[in-house]
Structures are given as C-alpha cells and as structure tokens.
Design a protein around this nucleic acid. Structure first.
Lengths: 149, 149
DNA sequence: CTAATCTTGACTTGTCTGGTCGAAATGGGG
DNA sequence: CCCCATTTCGACCAGACAAGTCAAGATTAG
C-alpha cells in the first residue's frame, strides 16, 4: 500500500513550485536542494509531469519550471494517479480503469476493496496543494508560538 | 497503493479456510481450486502464513490446513501487514515500524500521510473474515431473492 | 558569444514479483 | 509394517520495475 519514492518526489516538487509562487520560474537545482531530491532523477520526474500538463518549463538562463494550474485546484490524488497509476488496492475497483477479475459478479471481496479505495480517495482527492501549504504554515505558527512562551 | 497478488492470494486462502470451518483440515489442492490460486505458489504462501501463526497444518493422508484463530477475531489488516509489510503509504507514518525521514519534525506531509494511513486502517483493521463471509452470504441472498421474483 | 538551463533518451544496478520444481518428511489406513 | 496421499523445504528462474545515473544537445538571457 505504499507510494513509490518517485511519486513522493513528484509531490514534493509540485509542493515546492506551489510554495515558490508562479511569478517566476523555479530552477531544477533549487527544487532539488529544497526538497532533497537527487537532481538527475528530478529531471526525469519533471519531464514526466510536464508531459501530464501539470507544469510548464522555460529553457535557458533564468529558465525553470512553474505550475500550469493554481495550487488550490490541484489535488495530491491527481499527481499520485498520474505517476503511480490507479489508487485502487486491486484492479477491479479502480475508478478510471476497472479490470474485471475472474470471479466476475461473485467476488467475495469486491465490496471490501471498494471501501478501501473510497477511504483513500476521500483523503487524497480532497486535499489540494494549497491545503498542504496552509496546514504547514499553521503548524509552523503553532510551533513558534509554543517555542516563544 | 495496490496490494501484491501474493497478499490477495493469502487473503483468499484464509477466507476459504474460514468458510470451510475448522472441523476438519482443508487440502491445499481444494483451496487452490476454489480460490483459483496457482497451487505451487499457494504452497509457498501457506508456509509463510504458518510461520506467522495464522494457520496450522497436518501432514499425510487426510491432512491439510486449518485456522489457528476464529474467523471473527482475525482481521484482513493483520494478513495484509504480515504478507506485504506496513500499510502506511510512506515509512514515516507506519504504526508498527515508523522510520523517520530526513525532514524530522518539519515534514510538510506528515499529517497528510497520517490521514491516508488512518483511512486505510479504519477499513482493513475493522473488517474480520467473519464479516466478509457474512457480507457475501447477504449479497448472495439478495441476489437469489431478486432472481426469484 | 557564452554561460546557464532544460531536453532527451539510453543505460545501470539491484530488488521484487510471481511463480516452478524436485526430493524428502510425515501420517493414516490396511 | 508398508503404501500412498499429502505437506514441507529449499533452490531456482525469468521478467518487470524502482531508483537512479549519464552524456550530448537544444534553447535562451544577457
């Protein structure tokens, strides 16, 4: 039930871009340093995210990456699905590309796996990157307050 | 976010044993046929489940496997954890063996991944094999009723 | 022009998945 | 005590995938 490190890297890269803001592009090297991602691997990942239309790039000096959509309309679930494929624990309950298993309508587990899938979806498809940034800021503020008292 | 086919096979094997009842042991070949599991692979899986204390075996003629615990005290989550490892989407939010990541207390995603893990756990750790059997029976009854009308 | 930056695609290395196979140990029935 | 059905155990294997690495080229700002 775990996400690939590639997928987690992708999420962190998008987070970094969202936090950076879209005023000017952010360089691969900066993203890599901030999020501790191997730079060569990050190149591959950003290339893939570009292919999915999540980010756009500008080459040359002062180039870099930026988001194509606003952080509050982009959910973590979208990135997870794009990088790692369907979120469903087994293929037969996938929303986007269900694949019927050999038990057809008589599978004992169909309802169960469906509930698992729905539980995951309820979290990842309702959380946007804007939510994550907000949450992180609040956590940080609480931490500072606590530290100052 | 998907479970391995080995894990799904394990779940189906336990289900078959639970449904069969513990009066007499069930043969590997019968489990394999009923649940459509490659028999040689099932041998490996049952060996592993025996190592985990979930099933016990009797050799020789009239031998086979049976559950060591009752179906209503055995959750699907236990089997998933035993076969596939922690349910957590990333290591740092694992209940049983958390592994701190390089961001320590300042990870932007800790809360998020924790909510994902909890959502999955709420389903898999609260569903017993007795629940699955009951659900399947009800579904079957509804189906028959519908068909008879 | 040149330095900074992204682009592309091939390559590597190790681990995991999903099995298969053969021989040995064990237990029940005759 | 012997035979046969059955589990048991460890070895083996091919292919896919994960997680990176690398080199050379295209593009753009200044």
């Amino acid at each position: 039930m775990s996400v690939s490190s590639k997928c987690y890297y992708a999420i962190r890269a998008i987070y970094a871009l969202a936090e950076h803001g879209n005023a000017e592009p952010m360089k691969i090297a900066d993203i890599a340093e901030q999020e501790m991602i191997p730079i060569r691997f990050l190149e591959v990942i950003l290339g893939q995210l570009k292919g999915g239309g999540f980010v756009q790039s500008r080459r040359g000096a002062e180039g870099g990456y930026r988001l194509t959509r606003s952080a509050d309309s982009l959910t973590v679930g979208e990135i997870m699905r794009y990088v790692d494929g369907p979120i469903a624990p087994v293929d037969c309950v996938s929303q986007s590309r269900p694949k019927e298993c050999e038990f057809h309508g008589e599978c004992h587990f169909f309802g169960f796996w469906g509930r698992v899938r729905q539980a995951i979806s309820n979290v990842v498809d309702r959380t946007t990157f804007a939510d994550l940034i907000k949450e992180s800021k609040e956590r940080n503020r609480d931490f500072v307050n606590e530290w100052m008292i």
